[in-house]
Design a protein around this nucleic acid. Structure first.
Lengths: 102, 102
DNA sequence: GCGCAAATTTGCAACTTTTAATAATTATAC
DNA sequence: GTATAATTATTAAAAGTTGCAAATTTGCGC
């Protein structure tokens, strides 16, 4: 196999629109923190509230957004909701950007 | 060398804030398109206007934002401005997200 | 079943940010 | 000077954020 060129074709325009939608979700430090926390382990809303230091309602709203975007799922146990990340790879770009020291 | 664990430590909180700032810049389809175009080659403002199909003023505003974030640089030749990307790796997350079919 | 308490979500309102259009301005070439 | 390329300023509309209070859901004891 011959490696001819490293040119990467431009993505179709809709790809940028979709991509931008995801970035909009990621463009909030609290949501980023949630995703990075959930990357390691499932967490309850209660725990997230304590860890993030924002109101419960606010955490809930962020979680709803992430849920609707299918970035996290919730498992209900009694009164509590336990959230986990659907695909941990979603936070990879976060780390890449961090390594680019940006 | 032994691989003990794949646990990645949470980033410091400021990292998420910085990260979110970058995502805010990336969270716009036109800016994403600009960055992905510039990934391959330097382009003039004029060319960008034609390719993107939006007003020159609007292109200019997006470019100013990218410039201030030091994501692109400009080279002036006479009346024309030629833009290039500072670090092509900035668009990698874009492609990663795209491959995650998101 | 019913009522109560706890965990979570939702609705509302105030505020901030972002976007994109038009108009005005700057800078350079001729 | 005039024309052209690009930027900046000024808007108005749209979208996002957040806290409080109200509503919802669930579990538990009776």
């Amino acid at each position: 196999m011959k490696t001819v060129a490293k040119i990467k074709k431009p993505l179709p325009r809709v790809a940028y629109e979709k991509n931008a939608e995801i970035y909009k979700i990621l463009a909030n430090s609290k949501r980023l923190e949630i995703l990075n926390l959930l990357r390691e382990q499932e967490m309850s809303v209660e725990e997230l509230v304590k860890t993030l230091g924002i109101t419960k309602a606010n955490v809930s709203q962020h979680l709803a957004l992430l849920r609707h975007a299918r970035l996290v799922t919730v498992r209900r146990v009694g009164l509590n909701g336990f959230y986990k990340i659907v695909d941990p790879r979603i936070v990879e770009p976060c780390r890449i950007l961090h390594k680019l020291r940006m």
